[in-house]
Structure formats: C-alpha cells, structure tokens
Amino acid sequence: MSKDRVISADKMMNRAKGPVWHKKQKDQGIIPKGLRGIDKEATWCKSQAAGWVYGHGSFSLTSHKHPVLGCFVWMKNSANEAKRMWLETFHVKKQVDFIAMDSKAGDADLFRELKRQRKMNLITSCRATMDKTATRKKMIAFMSKPKHKKIYRERAYKVEPMQGLVKDIFELDRCWMRGDANNRWLFAAMGLTIQMHQLQAFKQGRSTWNIKEQVLG
C-alpha cells in the first residue's frame, strides 16, 4: 500500500447550539411558542450510528499514509457528502490514486467520472441489490478485489477517528455557535489548528494523535 496514494472522506454530524427545531415545524416555518435561541439555519440528517441529528455537518479528508488531517470544513448537515467529496478532491487529483468513502458514494456515475476526469479510483461499499446493470456489475467487481476491500477497511481507522479527534479536542458534541456563516469559519479554524499541530508533531517524530495539550495550550 505504500506506493498507492490513498485518502478517505467522511462527514460528521454536529448537534446545533440551542433547542431542536423539529423537521415538520421547520419545513412549515413554524417556531413553537416559547422556543428561544434556536439555530434557524441548522438542518436535519440521519446516520445509522447517531440517528437523526439537527445541526451542522463537518467534512474531512485524511491520507492513509500519513496520520495528519488533510481537510476539515463545514457543510450543511443535510448536504450530500458524495457531492462535497467531488468538490474537495479537485485540487488533489494529481496526488491521489484512490479515494475511499462509505456507501453514500456508491454511485456508478461518480465512480466513472472520478476515473475519467481525475484518474482517481473510488473505493466504496455497493449495495448487493443494486447490481441490475452492466455498469453496476463492473463497479461491484472492482470493489470486490482484495486490494480494494483492504483500502475500504482502512478508512474505518483513518478518517473516522480523525473526525473524532477534532470533536474530542474542541468538545464539539454540540456546536459552539449558531448559523451557517459562524460555524463555517469556526470549523475552518479548528481544522487549521489541528493541521498545524499535527504537522509539527509529524516533523518531530511525535504522535499526531496525542496533540490535545499542545492545541489547547
């Protein structure tokens, strides 16, 4: 794997500051009487691990070779992370051979266009029931190769814990601020701070995971 340039992408859901604005009422623009301090710009999203979360999303990229955060940015909680992955990987298209992402990236068109336009191989999880076309069957066969299965397994201990590291250091179980604009710059600052301290640790031969004390001062 050392010669293969591999990165993984992931989205994390962060609960909004303040009370929850239930989806049916939000869709109708109805704020219940007495509900104060609500984040009107937060959105709903669901994951298998966390269930439904009202808040803001954070998107990250991490290299499989070097345990350093490559990207940590705000995104709408309800936004499509596969589309965000497409946008965020443009600037690294000449440095990356494989990009791994969960089943939300299991789209045959995305698989094809990453290969055609960027010479990048998408590694994801394909649902077994979606094998009706020749294109899908070809994609599933590609993902089933032992080397590609190994890359997909790696993402579980490369990018997902990196999101958790940011969350732990900054106690990001709940957003610090309300609104898209506020969280956008705050998440960017968090990501940059982690990157700076991880790079310093990497150059000094120290663990890039054990940096909480350095980050917080």
Rank of each mutant, 00 (worst) to 15 (best):
M85F: 03
L87W: 07
L87P: 01
E88Y: 09
E88G: 07
T89S: 08
F90H: 09
H91V: 06
H91Q: 11
H91A: 08
V92Q: 06
K93P: 00
K93W: 00
K93V: 00
K93M: 03
K93Q: 10
Q95V: 00
D97I: 00
I99W: 02
D102M: 08
S103M: 14
K104D: 07
A105L: 09
A105Q: 07
G106E: 09
D107Q: 13
F111G: 00
K115C: 01
K115T: 00
R116K: 13
K119V: 00
M120T: 01
M120R: 02
N121K: 11
L122P: 10
L122D: 02
I123M: 03
I123D: 03
T124I: 06
S125M: 09
S125F: 08
C126I: 15
C126Q: 10
R127C: 09
R127H: 11
A128W: 12
T129G: 05
D131A: 14
D131C: 12
K132L: 08
K132C: 04
T133Y: 11
T133S: 14
T133Q: 10
A134Q: 13
T135M: 14
T135E: 15
R136V: 02
R136M: 14
K137F: 04
K137T: 04
K138H: 05
K138G: 00
M139R: 10
M139K: 08
A141K: 14
A141G: 03
K145R: 10
K145P: 02
K147V: 09
H148A: 03
K149H: 04
I151V: 11
Y152N: 05
R153I: 00
R155E: 10
R155W: 04
A156Y: 10
Y157R: 14
Y157Q: 15
K158I: 15
K158P: 02
V159P: 06
V159L: 11
E160W: 10
M162P: 01
